[in-house]
Amino acid sequence: MNFAREEAGGVLTVRLTRDRKLNAVTGDMLDGLRAAVAELADRDDAGALVITAAGRYFTAGADITALPVGDTGPGVRGSDFRRAYRGLHELFDRIEAVEKPVILAAQGPCLGIGVELAASCDFRFATERTTFGLPEVRNLAALPGSGGISRLTRLIGPHWAKWVAMAGQTLDAQRALAAGLVHAVYPEDEFDRRVREFALDLAGQPREALGLAKLLVDAAATADRTTARDLDRIANSALIASSEHQAKLAAFRKFR
């Protein structure tokens, strides 16, 4: 097993544990992530998912000898490669689509597929020794094609995306924070606790409102302003009749 699963207080945690290979991602690690995302979606008592790691790296990237993305090289049809590769894309799409928060907590360097995974999550945290990089162009003469360009550009804009994806430059934790890639940088000795506290707080939020907020934020990133505001009103018109809203409203009135 190259990963461990933990659960507490409505928070599911998947931890990469392949430190001997710097947590280079394998097919079974991806399967563990798929199972965790499916469990998060299906379980009413699961409110958030944390993806983290143990050891020197969050991940050194994909283990290209153990990652099922199909054959490469001369004579391989592009359509065949894309069909095999789609399974990886679909995992990141599911993380983005699940109507519950997914948190990436990178305790160390995060490269290649790790950045693509991070970009598909809702929240990202780093320690002071965390770095982020996309070495695919320089090292493989290929692209970080599972969101390493598209999602990363949406998060940090073309200015920094070119710095990372084209120039192959590394963002240290503070620069990643300034660029908007991570939400916070915590000291290593506080990291697990601070991430856990954040995840527990999210898991305790009203589920329907939190899920709709995630959908609407992502929709607003690409919709025109009028459409985005219409979606806000439509979503809220459903929420005001919910039992969660009524309970919160009654508690507020009682407090006043």
Rank of each mutant, 00 (worst) to 15 (best):
29 M>A: 06
121 C>I: 04
10 G>A: 06
65 T>V: 08
90 E>D: 15
235 A>G: 15
253 R>G: 01
186 Y>H: 15
216 L>I: 10
54 A>P: 00
249 L>D: 05
63 D>R: 11
129 R>T: 12
72 T>N: 11
150 S>R: 10
8 A>M: 08
139 N>I: 05
247 A>N: 04
31 D>I: 05
48 A>R: 02
221 A>C: 02
173 A>V: 08
5 R>L: 11
241 A>N: 09
62 A>D: 08
109 P>A: 06
254 K>T: 11
137 V>R: 14
134 L>V: 15
204 G>D: 09
135 P>D: 04
249 L>M: 07
208 E>A: 11
206 P>H: 05
203 A>F: 00
137 V>M: 08
209 A>Q: 04
97 A>R: 14
135 P>R: 04
218 D>V: 03
22 L>I: 01
206 P>L: 04
119 A>N: 10
227 T>I: 12
44 D>T: 08
215 L>Q: 15
246 Q>G: 11
72 T>A: 14
225 R>E: 04
105 A>V: 10
186 Y>P: 03
200 L>W: 00
26 T>H: 05
205 Q>G: 07
138 R>F: 03
26 T>S: 11
187 P>M: 05
186 Y>D: 02
222 T>D: 08
110 C>D: 06
48 A>G: 03
242 S>N: 04
7 E>I: 05
248 K>P: 00
68 P>R: 10
94 R>V: 07
130 T>A: 10
256 R>W: 14
52 T>F: 07
192 D>L: 11
163 W>H: 13
50 V>Q: 09
6 E>W: 12
62 A>W: 05
235 A>K: 01
52 T>W: 05
127 T>V: 09
242 S>A: 03
252 F>Q: 09
5 R>M: 06
119 A>D: 04
96 E>Y: 03
94 R>L: 08
192 D>W: 10
204 G>N: 13
182 V>A: 06
80 D>K: 13
55 G>T: 08
65 T>K: 12
56 R>G: 12
31 D>R: 12
176 A>S: 13
84 A>L: 07
36 A>V: 07
255 F>L: 13
254 K>Q: 13
231 L>F: 02
225 R>T: 06
79 S>K: 11
201 D>A: 15
194 R>C: 14
221 A>Q: 07
22 L>H: 13
22 L>R: 14
113 I>S: 01
